[in-house]
């Protein structure tokens, strides 16, 4: 159980770090949101479930899983809201062809 938890946490940390690197490297708002929205969601999800595995069957684990579910629902919604704001205010998407 502990080993599984640590593996999950390591995976989560890996995705969180990759998401941050993507934030820096990607060329425009929309592509950055891909990195932010996906990697962060899965990263924190994995850290939470990993810690829940590490704790075993106690109340804290249930709370951790509730927090994970909450992030799973809200994070894409927040990403979508920000993307919508960018689109409504006329930010154009970066294309590979337009920047050659």
């Amino acid at each position: 159980m502990t080993v599984l938890g640590m593996a999950l946490i390591s995976g989560g940390v890996f995705f969180l770090v990759t998401g941050a690197v993507g934030m820096v490297r990607f060329p425009d708002i929309y592509t950055r949101m891909h990195a932010a929205g996906k990697c962060d969601t899965l990263g924190s999800l994995l850290v939470m479930t990993g810690l829940a595995c590490h704790d075993g069957f106690v109340l804290t684990s249930a709370k951790l899983l509730i927090a994970a579910g909450f992030i799973l629902v809200t994070s894409p919604t927040a990403t979508h809201a920000i993307a919508r704001a960018a689109r409504q205010s006329g930010v154009e998407a970066w294309t590979a062809e337009g920047n050659r």
């Binding site: 934030m23 708002i29 990263g43």
Partner: peptide, 13 residues
């Protein structure tokens, strides 16, 4: 805004 949101998510972890 995206950056702040990302930092927030990482802070939770």
């Amino acid at each position: 805004i995206v950056g702040v949101n990302v930092i927030g998510t990482k802070t939770i972890a």
